[in-house]
């Protein structure tokens, strides 16, 4: 029996329980702001850090925890394109396709990545390892083309550099469509 929440219009989503670690970290953020709702973005980042992405169940859990509606929290979540509302691979490639990188030939690099991994922008490899996402300028124009992988900036990208990275990650060279 759950008399805690009598949702006004039934949502199909059932909030999951936040883990102790998640709650602990969110509580810390809560102590820093006078207003619970201000913690929305930080809380989403915490959940994403632990879960890889923000599922509907997580969204509802955080919304309940912060005393706001899931709709309002989703407004925050979807505003930021690095809060993932769909599952992503274990490793996310944030690939810069902005001006300097474009001039320095990022399109070729992207084509090479796509070929090796068999994925386009916004897609995840079948084994759930990599997701490729385009981002605007990473602030490293003088070392273009650039991408961010596992929080580390990969600079002056070349097809060879990509191969080295992917080989190291154990991606077979035959994974592409060819």
């Amino acid at each position: 029996m759950n008399s805690q929440i009598i949702a006004s219009t039934a949502s199909k989503v059932v909030a999951r329980a936040l883990t102790e670690q998640e709650r602990h970290e969110i509580d810390h953020e809560l102590s820093l702001y006078p207003d619970k709702r201000a913690v929305g973005l930080e809380a989403l980042k915490i959940v994403q850090k632990h879960q890889g992405w923000v599922s509907d169940e997580s969204l509802h859990a955080v919304a309940d925890y912060l005393g706001m509606s899931a709709h309002e929290l989703d407004g925050v979540a979807t505003f930021f394109n690095l809060i993932f509302r769909q599952p992503v691979g274990r490793r996310v490639m944030l690939f810069c396709d902005s001006v300097s990188c474009y001039i320095m030939g990022c399109e070729n690099i992207k084509a090479h990545i796509s070929k090796r991994l068999g994925i386009d922008y916004g897609e995840t490899t079948a084994d759930g390892e990599f997701t490729l996402i385009p981002v605007p300028c990473l602030g490293d124009c003088d070392k273009a083309p650039v991408m961010l992988l596992d929080g580390e900036q990969q600079r002056r990208l070349t097809p060879e550099k990509i191969d080295a990275l992917l080989d190291k990650a154990g991606v077979p060279s035959s994974l592409g469509n060819e």
Binding site: I6, A7, S8
Partner: peptide, 12 residues
């Protein structure tokens, strides 16, 4: 239209 747990958009 009932929701006892929701504290409103402005709930601090």
């Amino acid at each position: 239209l009932i929701n006892d747990s929701w504290q409103g958009r402005n709930g601090a």
